[in-house]
Amino acid sequence: MAARTYLRPTGFVDAPFGHDGKVARLAGGLLWFAAVEIVRDDGVELVPVDGFEARLDSLGEDARVAWTNLTTSRAPLRLGERVIRLDQPQVAAILNVTPDSFSGDGQGGDVEAAIEAGFAMAAAGAALIDVGGESTRPGSQTVWEGDEIARIEPVVRRLAGGGTAVSVDTRKAAVMEAALAAGARMINDVSALTFDPRAAEVAAAARCPVVLMHHKGDPATMQDDPRYDRPVLLEIYDWLEARIAAAIEAGVDRANILVDPGFGFGKTVQHNLAIMNGLAMLHGLGCPIMLGASRKRTIGALSNAAPVDQRLAGSIAFALKAAEQGAQLLRVHDVPATLQALRVWRGMRDAALTPA
Rank of each mutant, 00 (worst) to 15 (best):
L79S: 07
M276W: 05
G133P: 02
K267H: 07
D105Y: 13
G314Q: 05
R78L: 12
A319F: 06
V168Y: 06
L180E: 06
P336E: 03
T338R: 08
E61D: 09
A192Q: 05
G217W: 11
A313P: 00
M290V: 15
L193I: 03
L273A: 03
D147Q: 14
G29P: 02
I94W: 10
V13M: 07
P48C: 05
V97P: 01
W32R: 04
A160V: 13
E61I: 15
L31D: 03
T142D: 13
A35T: 09
F119E: 00
E116G: 08
E53M: 04
L320Q: 00
E112C: 00
N96V: 15
N188Q: 10
G262H: 12
P355S: 00
M213E: 01
V49A: 07
N304T: 14
L320Y: 03
A317K: 06
A174E: 14
I84H: 02
I316N: 02
T164H: 11
W239I: 04
A113Y: 02
F119H: 14
K22H: 13
A250N: 03
I236T: 11
A150E: 15
S58Y: 11
Y6W: 14
A246S: 14
L159G: 07
A63K: 05
I257T: 10
A124Q: 02
I289M: 03
G163C: 07
L95C: 08
G18C: 04
G292I: 10
N256Y: 08
H333M: 13
E324K: 07
P219W: 12
A192P: 05
I316P: 00
P226G: 00
P226T: 10
A322C: 07
A206L: 08
S167T: 09
D57K: 15
H283G: 12
